[in-house]
Nucleic acid binder design. Structure first.
Length: 492
RNA sequence: CGGGGUGUAGCACAGUCCGGUAGUGUACCUGGUUUGGGACCAGGGGGUCCCAGGUUCGAAUCCUGGCGCCCCGACCA
């Protein structure tokens, strides 16, 4: 990229778009607000999927798939949910096109093929899934029902941004049903913890676990929990949510079961999801002015090997050595890319793989052949060192581990630096304007105060941290009593 | 939907005020020299100048009307 990470919001947006494009991750589609995820970008998403999917299975969940279309009447059943999404729904009204008599060779919607009932393209699947759960659940023996779906959803947002907010996006949505409220709450928190663990261990991105305020709650949920991350421009990003639905959907869709005691009761629900937005989080959490930096645990390519050669003979000699090194690295469970293209120069390749965020690069040239060495460069610090050729392969696991740790620590420090504690409204405004980041402040717990602060400062309550200390204070806005601090930030 | 910007080669842009039939960089192709941090030289291919209509001998350029995209806002579990 060759530029400093910009601080102005507008410049940061352009910088972000350029990075996404140059690192070969994704591009805007000609289709309104949609995104084309390119093979390299998709391979990172696949790594995320694999890691998450394993965590879901380890906690007892199974995958299933439900329809893309939700009949409008089903969609309406849970009123708050329907209302919350109504403004951003794509709707199918017809099922056929026909030749346009006015314009030869063109097609038009066949007015005779109007659907009796419109189909909503799912913005989320609660409705279609709970209408199915009604059929699947009769007895406490059918519970808990622990299901996850990998799918695409459509939300017709006013304004879109690559990965962070697109009209169509890929995600996973878990939907569970339980016999008791306690069990459902436990599930909600368990999945929140799964998300936090994924963000921290795999994405090397520290997150704050918390509960959403009433104003930010998922429509139809009793309680919404989230993980919040801090991006390098000082804005917060909601990286995942887990909802305790109470009996709202069970009642809306009449999902009842007979308990051990023989009583008919409504089940208790949860839903939780993360999306390709995590890709945006990954990019904005770690990139530098040379491009993307990938945590080794999500990198599709762990090590890239670049040969430096003048003659065909040299290339062959290097290739033989590379063969030995890369097979030793692969044996340890890592992926190696040998970039032996003779169409690009080494310097070009160095820059290209750095842009794509490959954690480790090994360069081998004639000088190394002579000395029995290689040059090893790490992406996170751009540090280079010369190593013995026959020792490099076994040093890789520790190096990758170190990179994973280092970028986590770096992001953690950054977030801490960007977290402020304030006690007055003036301080809150000042910090938001000058420093950004999370601001910890007392809040009286009312929607009115939250809305007023949002309107005046553009900052929202990101969450009420789960580990917030109980301390009595005065709301920075209203001066009323507050039992604990909450986190404010401007957010994506 | 408001404010601002923009639409010309795959990409990034100049040319538009002042009308004369399209250019630069990069990428691409060919040949040669190169190769330890984004190579160099020479040659070459590539365009409905967003769309529609109008003015004019002649429109990328002027006029009218559409549309798209970008950034900021509004919106955003």
């Amino acid at each position: 990229m060759g530029k400093e990470i910009p601080t102005r919001q507008e410049d940061y947006s352009l910088w972000y778009n350029e990075l996404v494009k140059k690192a070969d991750l994704a591009e805007h589609s000609d289709v309104r607000g949609c995104m084309i995820i390119k093979p390299y970008g998709y391979s990172i998403w696949e790594k995320m999927q694999q890691a998450l999917d394993k965590m879901f299975k380890d906690t007892g969940h199974s995958n299933a798939y439900f329809p893309l279309f939700v009949p409008k009447s089903l969609f309406e059943a849970e009123e708050k949910n329907a209302e919350g999404f109504a403004k951003e729904c794509a709707i199918v009204t017809h099922y056929r096109l026909k030749n346009d008599p006015q314009r030869p060779g063109k097609l038009m919607v066949d007015p005779e093929a109007k659907l009796e009932e419109e189909l909503v393209v799912r913005p989320t699947s609660e409705a279609i899934i709970w209408s199915t759960y009604k059929k699947w659940i009769q007895s406490y023996r059918d519970l808990p029902l622990l299901i996850n779906q990998w799918a695409n959803v459509v939300r017709w947002e006013m304004r879109t941004r690559l990965f962070l907010r697109t009209s169509e996006f890929l995600w996973q949505e878990g939907h569970t049903a339980h016999a008791t409220s306690d069990e459902a709450v436990k599930e909600t928190l368990q999945m929140l913890n799964v998300y936090a663990a994924f963000a921290e261990e795999f994405m090397a991105m520290p997150v704050i676990k918390g509960r959403k305020s009433e104003g930010e709650r998922f429509p139809g949920a009793v309680d919404t929990y989230c993980i919040e991350a801090m991006m390098q421009d000082g804005k917060a990003l909601q990286a995942g949510t887990s909802h305790f639905l109470g009996q709202n959907f069970a009642k809306a869709f009449n999902v009842q079961f007979t308990s051990k005691e023989g009583k008919l009761e409504h089940v208790w629900g949860t839903s939780w999801g993360v999306s390709t937005r995590l890709m945006g989080a990954l990019i904005m959490a770690h990139s530098d002015d040379d491009g993307l930096i990938l945590p080794p645990k999500l990198a599709p390519i762990h090590v890239v090997i670049v040969p430096i050669f003048k003659t065909e003979e040299e290339r062959k000699k290097i290739s033989d050595k590379v063969e030995q090194i890369s097979s030793k690295i692969r044996e340890q469970g890592f992926t190696v890319k040998y970039d032996n293209r003779d169409t690009q120069k080494p310097g070009f390749k160095f820059a290209e793989w750095e842009l794509k965020g490959v954690p480790v690069r090994i360069a081998i040239g004639p000088r190394d052949l002579e000395n029995g060495t290689v040059e090893v460069a790490r992406r996170d610090t751009k540090e280079k060192k010369t190593m013995k050729m026959d020792e490099v392969a076994e040093s890789i696991p520790a190096l990758l581990n170190d990179i994973q740790q280092n970028i986590y620590t770096r992001a953690f420090k950054f977030r801490n630096d960007k977290t402020s504690v304030v006690n007055t409204y003036d301080e809150l405004k000042k910090v938001l304007d000058e420093k950004g980041g999370f601001v910890s402040a007392h809040w009286d717990g009312t929607v009115e105060t939250e809305t007023a602060i949002k309107e005046e400062t553009k900052a929202t309550i990101r969450c009420i941290p789960l580990d917030a200390i109980e301390e009595s204070g005065k709301c920075v806005y209203s001066g009323k009593d507050s039992p604990r601090r909450v986190l404010f930030a401007r957010a994506y």
